[in-house]
Amino acid sequence: MLSLMVLLPIAGLLVQGFSAGIPAFLAAVNTPRTWAALFLSFRLSLVAALFNLVFGLVLAWVLVRYRFPFRKVLNAAVDLPFALPTAVAGIALTALYAPNGAFGHIAKDWGFKIAYTQWGILIALIFVGLPFVTRTVQPVIEEIAREVEEASATLGATRAYTLRRVIWPMLAPAALTGFALSLARAVGEYGSVIFIAGNIPLKTEIAPLLIVIKLEEYNEPGAAAIGIAMLVMSFGMLFVINAAQVLSRKRRGNV
């Protein structure tokens, strides 16, 4: 089942990408425009995932540990980016951040543009990726008893020390998983970004759009070539994240 659903499409991608031979593959990938798009996609995805890691952790912590009005509403709202069709999210974000939108207007007064720049892309990527971190770490935080922190304090640990040596080791594996999921989603995100990015080649053109453009030129091998480049880069990043998880387990014991 797994091989049918996952491996077969990947095999198809590889066959299609290399169908015209290695030189053609390199010619498709090795252009300034493709590199610019790949670099943009991965760089912004990394920044968005890092932001989501920090903010998603804080959000999950607040949702679990604090009781405040509308907590349940906020808790449900975290899933919104999951449920919302990405095109709807893209249009909504664009309407908000365009120079005549609610937030875009304020930015414009400050002499700053959000929509149709890389900032716009970043906002869309943060939006779609946030629930991944929050939802993966939330159950782990729920498992951490307050008594653990109290015990740490009675043994003379400062709050920062407790956070660093007691809480973080317990959270780290889940947080890294959430980070990886958020990153993976951001790299492949198309629907929401396309509306808020200006789509200008070399500036605000994301790699998935380049794939769509190649497809519309009826250039399937070219599209598959960029797809393979993305696959390799994603694989590399996930490999590093997994290695980090393995290392943290070895150092701190399996928690």
Partner: peptide, 11 residues
């Protein structure tokens, strides 16, 4: 002089 390159005419 083109700041936004949309996908289709309606966009």
């Amino acid at each position: 002089h083109v700041p936004v390159l949309d996908k289709g005419a309606r966009d």
